[in-house]
Design a protein around this nucleic acid. Structure first.
Lengths: 230, 230
DNA sequence: CGGTGAGTTGACACCGGTCAAAGACCGTGG
DNA sequence: CCACGGTCTTTGACCGGTGTCAACTCACCG
């Protein structure tokens, strides 16, 4: 149970978030007043693809994975994983009444999210220039990320994508790998291939692997593989 | 040469566009006053990837292809083709000062675009709730399209993508195919494979091909191929 | 009539996906 | 403490789609 009332915590969260941080507390207060917190356990769904998005979420603690299910349910593609102070469902809420294009699920127990009613958010964001600017910039940036993602998935090979992942997440210090299934969903492939590639990198002496803890050994070579490969 | 002064034509164009059409003329007039028109010939570049986006474009006549060059310049991926009343460079302008992620080139002679200074657009859009709402909705929708595109490129086979293209562009009446290179850039593959697949569809009696004019013969079968293909 | 560019076609290599089997790991409950 | 079951991981064999290279045809044009 929170020690402070929701609106106070909501304001605190919003005003320290990258999207809304630039706005003044006065602008954020009415929005925070409409917010409620919700706690999820690992695996609990926040929303499903096809739902009409009626809530904007901001992660308070834990993390949320946003993903699509494709190929008749046989494959998943993780779009992004959001940590504290990040928005979830931003697109859906602002795209109008289109159904949400993705599922969202909590990755940790507990994961706490701030829920903001979509209608209130829209009304308030559109009417406040600073908020409108922040939201637009955030959407635009997200779109650029998505584009880079698309390019990687379509035009680079699995080895390049895995090398890029390792550099991003295990560059300094050891890193606990997610399951091969989760990695596969992130990299757009299947668990078997993740296993093979990891083994290959290990045999080449590029990484150290010990009980799902990975450490980069040969960073220049990994960068060569990730970067100008092909 | 236009018979009307630019601001008048600009207002006319803006107020009939899907993005800004919902706004009142009073809201649009200051924006239109800052607009200038520019005429391009086929193949002329509107901007390049890496440029800092200082202008928002709206196509007035003709069409503009937005694309990325990948794999060290050996491959192109067409992101979208925009016709009259559609925005180009929307993301770049609103994403902040990040460099543009794509190239844009005119597809026809002549192609006329309305050029709006980015700073003026931002200031005006953020300060006008109706415009902010429209822009956000437009960005969000574009992002959803991009997502669908990503999914198709990653998880469906060339045959499915080509069938989908044919259904979209040649469903009613004949359609002049672009060159195989252009089609390849659109479908995320190479000209040779486009040629093969088109030949295959022709031999199967799904389409009629005559001097680059294509006509759909067996629509149900194409829909089957494009849709729930395994 | 030669030249250029686009389109077509064949041979081939390789990556990635699938299926199946076996091994490693981790919890629970006896 | 050990046995058990489930999940995850690893590995092998195999197949099909896609990309590449090269040769050839065709249309168009000077």
């Amino acid at each position: 149970m929170p020690t402070l009332p929701d609106p106070v915590r909501a304001l605190e969260l919003l005003s320290h978030s990258p999207v809304f941080g630039g706005a003044s507390p006065a602008d954020l207060r009415p929005l925070a007043a409409r917010g409620t917190f919700r706690t999820l356990r690992r695996g609990e769904l926040l929303f499903r693809a096809g739902d009409v998005p009626e809530t904007l979420f901001m992660v308070s603690s834990g993390s949320v994975r946003v993903y699509r299910v494709v190929r008749g349910g046989t494959r998943e593609l993780t779009l992004h994983v959001e940590g504290p102070r990040q928005l979830v469902a931003g697109v859906g809420v602002f795209a109008g009444s289109d159904p949400a294009p993705a599922h969202a699920v909590a990755l940790q127990t507990p994961t706490e999210v701030l829920c903001l009613p979509a209608a209130a958010v829209r009304e308030h964001v559109f009417g406040t220039p600073a908020l409108a600017a922040a939201v637009i910039a955030s959407l635009a940036r997200r779109q650029a990320e998505l584009l880079a993602r698309l390019e990687g998935l379509v035009f680079s090979e699995l080895g390049e994508r895995l090398a890029a992942y390792l550099l991003e997440h295990a560059a300094d210090g050891p890193h606990a790998l997610p399951t091969n299934s989760d990695l596969a969903a992130l990299l757009g492939t299947v668990p078997e291939l993740v296993s093979r590639k990891l083994g290959e990198f290990y045999r080449l002496g590029l990484i150290q692997l010990e009980r799902r803890q990975v450490r980069v050994l040969d960073r220049p070579e990994l960068e060569r593989l990730a970067g100008r490969g092909g």
